[in-house]
Design a protein around this nucleic acid. Sequence first.
DNA 1: CAGAGACTTCAGACGCACGTGAAAGTAATA
DNA 2: TATTACTTTCACGTGCGTCTGAAGTCTCTG
Lengths: 156, 156
Amino acid sequence: MRDEEAVRQFVERMSRQLSDWGFPPMAARVLFAVMTAEEDTLSALDLAERLDVSSGAVSGAVRYLTDSGLLRREPVPGSRRDLYRLANESWWEASLTKMNRLKSIADAADEGVAALGGPDTRSGRAIAEMRDFFIFCHDEVPLMMEKWRERQAAQD
Amino acid sequence: MRDEEAVRQFVERMSRQLSDWGFPPMAARVLFAVMTAEEDTLSALDLAERLDVSSGAVSGAVRYLTDSGLLRREPVPGSRRDLYRLANESWWEASLTKMNRLKSIADAADEGVAALGGPDTRSGRAIAEMRDFFIFCHDEVPLMMEKWRERQAAQD
DNA sequence: CAGAGACTTCAGACGCACGTGAAAGTAATA
DNA sequence: TATTACTTTCACGTGCGTCTGAAGTCTCTG
């Protein structure tokens, strides 16, 4: 049923997609290794073995992921081993909802308008419109997410 | 009024934002050099001078941008010099509307579900939900853009 | 308290994408 | 046809992020 080789390829392909978006590659691999596991927690060693990477790489990746709030570390009492679990089943939703990137762009654009001498110059107007567009998106995305959640709720 | 140094910084900062999204840095610089120009067309030489980069770099960047449909090349009759103009005043809108990335992720996720043995396994279910989420976004974004266009139209 | 197991840190190597600068290519002018 | 103006191509150098592997640290067990 489950095709381990295909799963590997999937993890690799998906990680590539994420890293195209600026996500650290190894962190992406770890994230999908956890998502594609039938177990709901994995140790650092498990991750290193399944991904066939060094323990150091795993260490850096889980640190990134826990800092970002995507993964939760669960120390095992009476053992040096830590287990990792997805902090949020639908991390992608939370990630998109924030979308600080849109805000950063809007902010940068706003400074641009000032540098260009206000929204009444040719170029200033263009950048101002761009800024407004990104502000609009930044506002709309949460609404979109809400719609998604409603739809999900309705499906049950 | 117009602060050239601040404009430079703006171009640089904005390009950085774009390249964080996987956009080629030099292409981003050229794009914003054109957007921030008061002229509506610029030659390759203009671009090289304003950005203080080599002509080779400009050549590669404009090729990328014209191929992507963001810039239009306008040969000047009786001259070897070409001028470049924004192909679309609101290229960002068009770019977001396409958003092939979301589709790619959904496609990859779909293969993942198969590899995991269908949507009835623990991990398969998680990936299937993720897939549906990205399909949802892919469908919603065009609606969002429509809303934006309506709002813009209303503002006139 | 010694040893084993587990994670972290860090210096080094590696690969990759990017921009440079020079040389070649192409088209207009004389 | 030679010259000039502009663009494209490409081999090279560089910088950056990333992974490895070994050494270090910590903590539980015997």
